[in-house]
Design a protein around this nucleic acid. Structure first.
Ligand SMILES: [Mn+2]
Ligand SMILES: [Mn+2]
Ligand SMILES: [Zn+2]
Ligand SMILES: [Zn+2]
Lengths: 140, 140
DNA sequence: AAGAAGATTAGAATGGCTCTAATATACCGT
DNA sequence: ACGGTATATTAGAGCCATTCTAATCTTCTT
């Protein structure tokens, strides 16, 4: 049994989509593969669209946005907004924070346990906290 | 000497602009007054533009953006981006954080000393930290 | 008052993203 | 496999916050 499957291949991606209740279409499979094939990444819609084009994967920009939002809704991605002109989609959905390199626009993960927040304040009016984002901007 | 000047009047605003090296034009004075007249606020460009219109202050949208960015560059405002469709300009430039009410889109200040961060990680590659933003999203 | 630097403006342009509504595909039951 | 229904994809138009352009106007300095 030579190389039955790489660390994250078609099969795994297919299972992940099915497990999320997302139909494993050709486009979603291809995009999911681009996103999840190697380590974690912070991708923009435009980036992903261009990667798809480069690999001759025929997919429309609308579908890229649809897929990214669908994946996000199912918890496969986390959407991150840094500035008012575009967002990133993070394949790391565990609790963690980010360095943001202002020069290059790159994001880098900070493991969740490397920043401890003491005394997180109560949300006013009994509102429920849905997410805590910490972004450390650096001149890099 | 009855009511020589309110807590933040024309005079104060004029001095603030001059102190920043910004020419105190009619438009900047009017916008600065709207922004700084009462307590702290988190205003969008569109909001400010509409307030100006309501008060019959003749100013173009381009000038509103110019003024907001000029004020920000001089440290009179701090720009905050929550999602990829618009930013807020915060008249509170001291160190503090924010609750973000996802339903209404409103921001509320959290005093800087109400959240303590332990062990802030070093910026990679000797980069310098320019800002730390903490946004707590709540379902309000 | 005059020149130079800086600011304002209308309107066009940009760019990320969303919408529309027509077509195509995946899925389920038979 | 077939047919029917739900779901997904798509091109292109549209949207909206923001920025740009380049002409005009204002402020500042001398
Ligand atoms: Mn989105
Ligand atoms: Mn800006
Ligand atoms: Zn991340
Ligand atoms: Zn604030």
């Amino acid at each position: 049994m030579r190389q039955k499957k790489p660390s994250v291949g078609n099969g795994t991606v297919l299972e992940r989509l099915r497990a999320s209740g997302l139909r494993p279409t050709r486009q979603r499979l291809a995009l999911a593969k681009l996103l999840f094939a190697r380590g974690h990444r912070h991708a923009s819609a435009e980036q992903l669209f261009n990667e798809a084009k480069t690999q001759r994967i025929d997919v429309s920009l609308a579908t890229v946005y649809n897929a990214l939002h669908d994946f996000t809704a199912k918890g496969l991605l986390r959407e991150i907004s840094i500035d008012s002109g575009g967002s990133y989609f993070d394949t790391n959905t565990s609790y963690h924070h980010h360095f943001y390199f202002e020069r290059s626009g790159r994001l880098e993960d900070i493991a969740g346990d490397r920043i401890a927040i003491s005394a997180l304040p109560e949300a006013p009016g009994g509102a429920e906290i849905s997410r805590v984002d910490i972004i450390i901007r650096v001149n890099g």
